[in-house]
């Protein structure tokens, strides 16, 4: 009855990053703007915020990550742009 959709790989799409939200799967992980090391995982090397499709975070946690990065930038713990 239901024809299975071809798998993502067969459709030529590549899954980037990991499956599932890293903060939903680990309840102890906290998003803290005072921890630039922890946030650096969600920032590209040019200082941009990594999109959900790459970070794998759920909407709620992606929102929190983005807020934390913006707070960290405002107090000069993270760069706004690449500093070369």
């Amino acid at each position: 009855m239901m024809r299975a959709k071809p798998a993502a790989r067969d459709r030529g799409e590549m899954r980037v990053g990991r499956r599932g939200c890293p903060f939903c799967s680990d309840k102890n992980a906290i998003i803290d703007y005072k921890d630039p090391q922890g946030l650096s995982y969600f920032v590209t090397d040019r200082g941009k915020i990594v999109p959900r499709r790459v970070s794998g975070a759920c909407a709620k946690h992606q929102r929190e990550i983005a807020t934390a990065i913006k707070r960290a930038r405002s107090i000069a713990l993270l760069p706004f742009t690449a500093n070369s």
Binding site: K34, A72, R73, A76, L77, L78, P79, F80, T81, N83
Partner: peptide, 16 residues
């Protein structure tokens, strides 16, 4: 170390 220079300073004291 500051993530970017602020008022020509590259480092600063942080107090929380």
């Amino acid at each position: 170390a500051l993530a970017f220079p602020v008022g020509k300073h590259r480092r600063a004291y942080y107090i929380y």
